[in-house]
Design a protein around this nucleic acid. Sequence first.
DNA 1: AATTACATGTAATGAGTTACATGATTGT
DNA 2: ACAATCATGTAACTCATTACATGTAATT
Lengths: 188, 188
Amino acid sequence: MSLRHAVLGLLAERPASGYDLMKLFETSLANVWPATQSQVYGELGKLAASGLLTVSAEGPRGRKEYAITAEGRVELRHWLTETEPDRIRRSETLLRVFFLGALTPVEAAVYLGLEAGRAAAGHAALRELEASVPWGDDPISVYGRLALEYGLRLTAMQEEWARWAVEQVEGREAPTSSQAADMGETPD
Amino acid sequence: MSLRHAVLGLLAERPASGYDLMKLFETSLANVWPATQSQVYGELGKLAASGLLTVSAEGPRGRKEYAITAEGRVELRHWLTETEPDRIRRSETLLRVFFLGALTPVEAAVYLGLEAGRAAAGHAALRELEASVPWGDDPISVYGRLALEYGLRLTAMQEEWARWAVEQVEGREAPTSSQAADMGETPD
DNA sequence: AATTACATGTAATGAGTTACATGATTGT
DNA sequence: ACAATCATGTAACTCATTACATGTAATT
């Protein structure tokens, strides 16, 4: 249940409304902890009810600005320093790799080649993000850059792995007669 | 809804009972698509009801062995070749990185150092898994090795990143007076 | 006057986790 | 006899997604 802590963490920097938070979830946290509008508003209500947030101001159009309380900061620190992150991961991409045997080797190689392309595209998208974000001196900018670097390294690794995997699968393909000819083998 | 396809993929290789599948989920798929017993039994029921699986044999203790049908194979191929994998990712580890500004730089460096250690431990665990698995020639072994290699590269990358991140954070620490002296600065 | 942006909420559904509940067979 | 392993299922709960529902204020 990290959504709770994502909200707390964002509000630790400055007070904000649900609407403001949504923009942060769609930009900075999009690649790390996506959340929907209904989740965010629901969580704000629960956090305020349990005293970790308070409504610090009310504005036009029913706007409610929330601020973290001292109790909220204690909870945030507790989460960061005294609890273990959940490391359970599901990767649909990798799950598919397990079952590539249900396809022909050529189809499997195509799949892995597409994965390489998708990883390269992801890498490029992060590079663009890096260029477009107005990086400041605020803590979330500073530490957000570390997270971005993680993404860059991850996507680079994914592309390399996928290209390597294509080679592995191609090495297993029964060579066709034309490929055998290309490779200088003598047909008999 | 990939659990459906995970079950289908495993049964594409050979028929198995829910109990057999659970062992596969706990070993081969543990790092890729974890599933609980109640999920697996539920999904088997639904897949059999929709005709993608059939009960191919019944054994002692109420054992039901399921086999994939022709329709099931069509669905598996369709999933592999004509649908886009879901790439939505949540990383609690990275979410925490965003909020490390709520700690002192020293505490943040400690957190990242622990992450480096956890990544190294994960890498070592995968190496052990690699040594302990009886790798065969069956498709899941062949392609499972590709997935394992992904894990090895991922954990190696994570450790390198975390060590790099520690350095970044240490570079931002307010120098202590002794460090200022070490750096040749004149105290006044 | 119309459009865009601001702003908050609820309801239905699906996926996943944990705990509970039960019982048969095999090996020592 | 006992323990371990085999074997299947249900119920309650939490988290996340999608769609619906409503209305205000500012801009063009």
